[in-house]
Amino acid sequence: MSFKKLTVTSAFIIFFFYVGLIVSLGWFWDGSIFAESLQAKRTYYAVGLSVAAATLATLLALVLALPAAYALSRLTFKGKMVLDTILELPMIVSPAALGAMLLIFFNNPLGVWLQDNTVQFVFTFYGIVLAQFITILGVSTRLIKVALDEIPQRYEDVARSLGASHFQAFFSVTLPLCKKGIFAAAILTWAKALGEFGASLTIAGSMPMKTETLPIAIFIRLASAEIEETVVLIVILISIGLGILYGVRSISGKRGYA
């Protein structure tokens, strides 16, 4: 087998592996339950809650991840390696453990004070956003850092020699050059936030019409052996996630630098 065939075959094995899983849902597909679920307020709420929380968590993560990624990509400072390593924390600990850590934090004096003086996180929408934010923060920083690493520092240096301040050089040169990478990072982290389950369940619970996101709804249906309903919700989650990812990639793929 030629090298090209080997690599393309591997790509298709991955494709068929995932598509196979999606197709196998058809075994428990029930059109009437699908129509019923689409009309159910509880489904709409879960979809809206998932999309809203994932979008907010992604925006918040980007605000922090962009400057942090810049520091990790461009600058040399003490503790950089430790900081770089800790970004992997959400991938090392399980989502449930991450949620548990959050829950424990909010039972500490500082956490209690925070909840008393800001907003209530435990068993609320803010808890879901926080859980998703914590889960995606590391990965979004890592992805943006990769995007920044690909833009030579030299561009910024030249911009500064032409009279631009550090901020001006960043916003007029570096940011436009890596905006596609940042956009891609945002999409991926949004998708990860949308599918986040363990940490959200642990800190926000699974209250219908309050903290029940789509992944949590899927889990609850499955736990009650409502397989057909579970399948319908999985299909909705996949459709939203893949549909938005594909659409955004199609649009961004057509753009040049400017």
Binding site: P152, R154, L162, G163, A164, V173, L177, A258
Partner: peptide
């Protein structure tokens, strides 16, 4: 300063490149 690699900004046109420095200091 002109570095070894000319580092012409790829997201700007030639004109925008040569006028870049005039925006700032």
């Amino acid at each position: 300063y002109v570095p070894q690699d000319p580092s012409v900004f790829p997201h700007l046109s030639v004109e925008e490149n040569i006028l870049y420095g005039l925006r700032y200091n």
